[in-house]
Amino acid sequence: MVTATDTNLLTLAQWFSPAYPVGAFAYSHGLESVIEAGELISARDLDHWARILIDHGSGRSDALFLSAAYLAGTPEDIAEIDATARAFAPSRERLMETELMGAAFCRTTAALHGVALVDLTYPVAVGRAARLCDLPQETVATWFLHAFAANLVSAAIRAVPLGQTEGQGVLASLAPLCVAVARETLNGDLDALSGTALAADIASMTHETLYSRSFRT
């Protein structure tokens, strides 16, 4: 017998699947710049880089935006959270990434679930959709962060390149951190926003100057 919990998990598996048309595969979140500079050449380097992003950079801030959107009471609150998410993007390319992925997520999810979603940044769109679809907040935040980590690993597997097994080992090692950060950001307190992953922010700024690029960011 299929339960509501089973259905919820399958919905999240669909939302965060590489097949869900948000175009996540096209973005490296600045990793391509670091790889091009020879600063990320191993699974150990990737693990270090991803941990900083999830714990101190855009992973944590996006989890806060997701939870704030989930807890928001009115469309006006959502609009304010979304405006803050756009303002918090540290570079033009990172803003483009969250805007385009969010718009794509809104289009597909609105069509599938019959909910009102229009051109929100990606974490805000996911948080709002999860609330409208009555999905469990902590589970959604955890899956969101795991998908974020998986996309970083996928980009590194292609660009370093790393072996598939090495990459999957890194992703497995990041799982406890995804769980912890999701739990720590459940209050959606945007006063707690901060960003100390400065090397990643700079990498996202320098990416647009690369002579040859495989990723959009």
Rank of each mutant, 00 (worst) to 15 (best):
T121K: 00
T217A: 11
M96G: 04
G114K: 05
L135M: 12
S58Y: 14
A72R: 06
G102P: 05
G38H: 02
E166D: 15
R158C: 08
I54T: 14
I41H: 09
R51W: 08
M96R: 15
G127L: 01
V140D: 03
G57F: 10
L210C: 00
E76I: 05
L71Q: 15
F88K: 02
A130M: 01
A87F: 02
V153N: 04
T3Y: 04
R128E: 08
I157F: 03
R107V: 14
S42G: 06
W15N: 08
L162R: 07
G195Y: 15
T108G: 06
H29N: 00
A172Q: 10
S212L: 14
L145A: 07
E36Q: 14
A156R: 08
Y211M: 12
L53P: 01
S212T: 13
V126H: 06
G38V: 06
G57S: 13
V124G: 06
Y27N: 09
A50V: 11
V22C: 09
L71R: 15
H113V: 05
D82N: 15
W49R: 12
D6T: 11
A130D: 00
H56M: 01
V170T: 05
A147Q: 12
L64T: 07
E32T: 04
P18G: 02
L174M: 12
L46C: 02
A87T: 08
D189K: 03
P18T: 04
I202Y: 13
A104N: 13
F105P: 02
L12D: 11
T217L: 13
S67D: 11
P75T: 05
A37S: 13
L198N: 10
G73H: 05
T98V: 15
E184P: 01
V124C: 09
V160H: 05
S42H: 07
D6V: 11
T142Y: 12
L53C: 14
I81Y: 03
V115K: 09
M1T: 13
I81E: 00
D119H: 07
A192P: 10
L177Q: 02
A111R: 14
G59K: 02
L53E: 15
A129I: 00
R216N: 12
S194I: 04
I202T: 12
D201S: 14
V126E: 06
W15C: 02
R94C: 09
D189H: 05
V118C: 11
E32K: 08
H146A: 04
E93N: 06
L198W: 13
A89R: 09
A129W: 03
V2C: 06
A50E: 01
